Amino acid sequence: MKRVAVEKSLRNVKDYLKEQGYNVESLENNRDKINSFDAIVVTGQNSNFLGMHDTSTNGTVVYAKGLTPEDVHKELQRSL
Rank of each mutant, 00 (worst) to 15 (best):
K2W: 12
K2R: 15
K2A: 14
R3Y: 11
R3N: 14
V4F: 04
V4C: 08
E7H: 11
E7T: 09
E7S: 11
E7P: 04
K8L: 11
K8T: 14
S9R: 13
S9T: 14
L10E: 03
L10I: 10
L10W: 02
L10T: 05
V13H: 02
D15Q: 13
D15M: 10
Y16S: 04
Y16F: 15
L17T: 00
L17H: 02
K18E: 13
K18Y: 00
Q20E: 14
Q20G: 03
Q20P: 05
Q20H: 04
G21D: 00
G21H: 00
Y22L: 08
Y22G: 01
N23I: 08
N23G: 07
N23D: 15
N23A: 13
E25L: 13
E25C: 09
S26T: 08
S26R: 05
S26D: 13
L27V: 07
L27A: 06
L27G: 07
E28D: 09
E28Y: 04
N29T: 10
N29L: 11
N30P: 04
R31A: 01
D32Y: 05
D32P: 02
D32T: 08
K33W: 04
K33C: 02
K33D: 12
K33Y: 09
I34H: 04
N35W: 07
F37A: 03
F37D: 01
A39P: 02
V41M: 10
V42M: 03
V42C: 03
V42W: 02
V42T: 07
T43G: 15
Q45E: 15
N46W: 06
N46M: 06
N46Y: 08
S47P: 11
S47M: 11
N48E: 12
F49L: 07
F49A: 03
F49M: 03
L50S: 13
G51A: 09
H53I: 13
H53G: 14
H53A: 13
D54Q: 14
D54Y: 14
D54C: 11
S56Q: 12
S56H: 13
S56A: 11
T57F: 06
T57M: 07
N58K: 15
N58I: 12
G59H: 09
G59Y: 08
T60N: 07
T60G: 04
V61T: 07
V61S: 06
V62L: 01
V62C: 06
V62P: 01
V62H: 04
V62Y: 02
Y63D: 11
Y63G: 00
Y63H: 09
A64I: 06
A64V: 10
K65P: 00
K65S: 12
L67Y: 08
L67N: 06
T68K: 11
P69Q: 02
P69Y: 02
E70G: 01
E70L: 09
E70R: 09
D71C: 01
V72G: 00
H73D: 11
K74D: 10
E75C: 02
L76S: 03
L76P: 00
R78E: 05
S79C: 00
S79I: 02
